[in-house]
Structures are given as structure tokens and as C-alpha cells.
């Protein structure tokens, strides 16, 4: 088979990206240079001042809070997700696929509905407070918001780690033991470096949507949990200022892309160091 044949298989993916990413994002960029009309709607034009507005330091604390929540979410997902993926991959046996399916099951339900379930569970008169015998006071706090994000995106951490564990040759662990490595040493010197690509992929897959999330903060948050996603939503559905909302979106995307570039570069050099070590 020649390259030309295999290249055809890129077409569906490329079309998908074009229609569901490139075109909508192009529209968002076009709107971001427009002007809010007196009676709502967008007047297209050249108004780069939307970007000057979007870079206002006023939004820095909101962005920092969002990044902080998302970073905490990614770390917690790693702490919870890695042992889960490890257990399933190493000890799942013939139940492996069933266990992975169980992890995916909640994702068949809309994220919004699942977040509402947490409202019911965490509220002052909800299940958890009833069990504890007193109002837990978790809801309407940053803890609840981050908890909602962790729950919402945990699967995105487990799956790539599981995949990289599955890909790993178990003989490597045997080899580590043969070389007198204890369980801890074997894990840090053999398993962890092998699964680092999965960890990095999972961290990105969790962090990126968590930064832009607005559902968790809106439903589980309190007076001081305003995230960048809430601000953007307010521009579209509250203040009726689509151009500004679009400019904020583009700025957020640019920020995240720069972040991803550095993250991946850092990740690669870490992998290289591990490979040399």
C-alpha cells in the first residue's frame, strides 16, 4: 500500500475538524471583531478594541481562579485516576473491559444532569448531610466547584493512563524486579516513565475543558467562584454583547494554546530525561 492510499483515511477526520472546529472558530473570530448592535445581535466590522477590553486586568483574577481550579482538578483526577487505571490494567483480568465500561457509563448522561445530582447530594438537606447528621456546608464553595469538575472530567484522565498501561509490556516490570528493584523503585523507574505520555494526555484532557467550564461554578458555586466560562456566558446570554464574549473566547483559546505548547515541550523533555535515566 502506498501513502496516497492511507492518506484517504485522513479525510473524514479532517472534514470533521473543519466543520466542527475550524468553521465555528472562524465565525467566533469574525464576531469578535464586530460590534454589539443597539437592538442586540452583531454588526460585523473591524473593531479590535474588543481585544483591548478583553485584556483588561479586571479579568486576571477570574482567569487565575479558573486556572487554579482546573489545575487542582487535573491533580485530583491524577491522584484518583492513576490507581484506578493501574488496578484495572494490572488486576482486572477478564473483567477489564467491563470495568472500563462501568467507568464510561456515567458519561452517557449529560454533564449538566450529573452536576444537578451533586446539587441534590451535597445540599444542606441532601443525602450526604443526612448521613452526616448535620449540614455539611460543602455546596456553594470552591470545594464543591472543584469536586464537580473532578467528577465531570475524571474519565478523561483514567482512559489515556489505562491505554498506556495496557500498551506497556509486563515483562518490563519483571525485569525491574529481576534487577532487585523493590515495588516502589520498579514503579518509579519502570512503570511511571512508560505511562508518562498517558498522564500528560490525561492532564491536558482534564485541564482544558475544566478551565472553560461554567456549569460547575454556576450550580455548585458560591459568591466567590466566578470562572472565565461564567463571564463568557454572561456576555452572550446576559449582557447581550456577543463581540466581547467572542473576543474573550479567542483570548482564552490563545492563552490555552500557548500553555499547551509549553506543557507538551516540557513533557517531551521530561520523557527524554526519564529515557536517559
Amino acid at each position: 500500500m502506498n501513502d496516497a492510499f492511507w492518506r484517504r483515511f485522513l479525510v473524514p477526520g479532517a472534514l470533521w475538524l473543519a466543520f466542527f472546529f475550524a468553521v465555528p472558530f472562524g465565525i467566533a473570530i469574525a464576531i469578535s471583531f464586530g460590534q454589539a448592535a443597539e437592538f442586540g445581535g452583531v454588526i460585523y466590522g473591524w473593531h479590535p478594541e474588543n481585544y483591548a477590553d478583553a485584556l483588561d486586568p479586571l479579568f486576571a483574577p477570574i482567569l487565575l481562579r479558573s486556572v487554579g481550579y482546573a489545575a487542582a482538578t487535573a491533580l485530583l483526577c491524577l491522584a484518583i485516576g492513576y490507581p484506578v487505571a493501574y488496578t484495572i490494567a494490572r488486576f482486572g483480568g477478564r473483567w477489564k473491559n467491563a470495568l472500563i465500561a462501568l467507568i464510561l457509563l456515567p458519561f452517557l448522561i449529560n454533564y449538566l444532569v450529573r452536576t444537578y445530582a451533586w446539587v441534590a447530594l451535597l445540599s444542606d438537606e441532601g443525602l450526604l448531610s443526612n448521613i452526616a447528621g448535620r449540614p455539611l456546608g460543602i455546596i456553594n464553595t470552591p470545594v464543591a466547584v472543584i469536586g464537580g469538575l473532578v467528577y465531570g472530567y475524571l474519565g478523561f484522565m483514567i482512559l489515556p493512563i489505562y491505554a498506556s498501561l495496557e500498551r506497556m509490556d509486563p515483562a518490563l516490570i519483571e525485569a525491574g524486579k529481576d534487577l532487585y528493584g523493590g515495588p516502589r523503585q520498579t514503579f518509579w523507574h519502570v512503570t511511571w516513565p512508560q505511562t508518562l505520555p498517558g498522564v500528560l494526555a490525561g492532564a491536558l484532557l482534564v485541564f482544558l475543558p475544566a478551565v472553560g467550564d461554567f456549569v460547575s461554578a454556576q450550580l455548585l458555586g458560591g459568591p466567590d467562584t466566578y470562572m472565565i466560562g461564567n463571564l463568557i456566558q454572561q456576555q452572550f446570554y446576559g449582557a447581550d454583547n456577543w463581540p466581547f464574549g467572542a473576543a474573550l473566547t479567542v483570548v482564552l483559546m490563545a492563552f490555552l494554546m500557548i500553555f499547551v505548547a509549553f506543557f507538551l515541550r516540557g513533557g517531551r523533555s521530561a520523557e527524554r530525561r526519564e529515557a536517559l535515566a
Binding site: A36, L231, Q234, G238, A239, N241, F244
Partner: peptide, 10 residues
């Protein structure tokens, strides 16, 4: 509307 939205955001 922008002025109101700014107050709300602040």
C-alpha cells in the same frame, strides 16, 4: 449595558 455589565463583573 456595557457599564452595567462591568459593575456586575467587578
Amino acid at each position: 449595558r456595557k457599564a452595567w455589565d462591568r459593575v456586575w463583573t467587578e
